[in-house]
Design a protein around this nucleic acid. Structure first.
Lengths: 226, 226
DNA sequence: GCAGGACCTTGACTTTAGTCATGGAATCCA
DNA sequence: TGGATTCCATGACTAAAGTCAAGGTCCTGC
């Protein structure tokens, strides 16, 4: 069992390059935790006791409004970690987290991680780099939400996917409803945005498969604003 | 002159509690820099060479769209620091920065700061806490932009100001146009939102002075969503 | 004291996106 | 296999916020 945890920890990008002794001490304090599709890991406002890493599966981090609309902040997959904020602030989780698939997670109590960071300046620098990249992503998300309309945001999202998948035939990584929530809109509006891009000949859509027909056109749209 | 820098560094919250020797080495590599109202310090996309701290004055960090609309991410005042992201990522600034008043800044080259962080785990932890609090703020901002309407966002902003100023008679800390940009809207829409809150008897406005008449009502509005 | 300018407000209008309701397609699994 | 569920698309409508244009207020500096 300790063995499993060690292997799992080894697969987490953030802990790459950590000396084996430290990995082992991390393994001692962390827990492997299975969770099912739809399971809520924590909710915005709860005291933030643990830091998480995804061993397998998929987790979304989001904020919900009282009326039920949700804004996805990020989706995390195998090798990624999340819920750093309360580790260093010691307060509450700023957002909620829910499994989008049956998943396996590592949960690490914040105290232990802080101890480790005190002893491992290189890990600390990695953590700062990770936090910084999150900040960069959020800056982009804020700018998109505030300065761009839905079809433009969709174009940007598709270009990101294309870069990640390395080809023009994309497979959507999330159900469309979740993509809508990530883009800060609702499924109906996303549906119409997809139709619009199709009609303009920029993409072709069949279910969760999307072909990018005109990458430059998409890029022009994504850059543009009203 | 070195003396000035030391005093200035001593006033920066992030560096509070740093051993004098380290402060001194920071002073050696950092530069004092005056800048005038409206001066642009850096623009989104430029290589991020420096980290900044505000000695006096006021700086806004924002993203602009091609068409001229702007979204303010944060406004920094004396004692605060900004532009951490490229320090740890070594890439470009994710947003632009502009002086909102004649200001004095400290600029610190990223290399020197990284060196210092390697030697000072406690400073590293402070930086992680700072980055985390930024993330928390951005999560809130994303949620507001996506899940709430302008009058609700305004209500939230006024409540924050009220908490900061500790009384019900507020002085707006920014021109209304800048507040609009912070709230993700335009001056006309902000004007109407202010009028709406006034008509509902929640606030009373005269120029840049705002009286909060009904804090609970404001809070109810800020929490609510459509 | 008044001309110019920055900033703010208001009104009329347009555009975008959200709401509500309906129906279709795919999937899961008794 | 067929019934239920979930997810998605579409249409008709409403509401929110942006655009454009005009005018007001306040401050500054001759």
């Amino acid at each position: 069992m300790e063995k499993d945890k060690l292997t799992a920890l080894g697969g987490i990008k953030l802990f790459e390059g950590l000396p084996p002794a430290q990995l082992k001490s991390l393994a001692e304090i962390s827990q492997l935790k299975g969770c099912k599709y739809g399971e809520i890991l924590f909710e915005a406002g709860q005291p933030g006791t643990h830091f998480f890493a995804v061993v397998s599966g998929k987790v979304r981090v989001y904020r919900a409004s009282l009326s039920g609309k949700e804004q996805i902040l990020s989706v995390f997959q195998a090798g990624e970690s999340f819920a750093e904020v309360p580790v260093f602030e010691g307060k509450t989780y700023p957002a909620s987290a829910q499994a989008l698939e049956d998943s396996v997670l590592l949960s690490i109590p914040r105290r232990g991680l802080v101890e480790l960071l005190r002893r491992e300046p290189e890990l600390a620098l990695s953590v700062m780099a990770l936090l910084s990249s999150r900040l960069r992503a959020f800056v982009g998300q804020i700018a998109q939400l505030s300065l761009k309309e839905v079809p433009e945001r969709l174009a940007g999202y598709l270009l990101l996917l294309r870069a990640a998948q390395g080809r023009d035939e994309l497979t959507l990584d999330l159900p469309k409803g979740q993509i809508a929530s990530y883009l800060g809109t609702i499924p109906e509006t996303l549906s119409r945005a997809i139709k619009k891009l199709s009609e303009q000949g920029l993409i072709e859509v069949a279910g969760s498969r999307v072909s990018v027909l005109d990458p430059e056109g998409l890029a022009a749209l994504a850059e543009s604003d009203r």
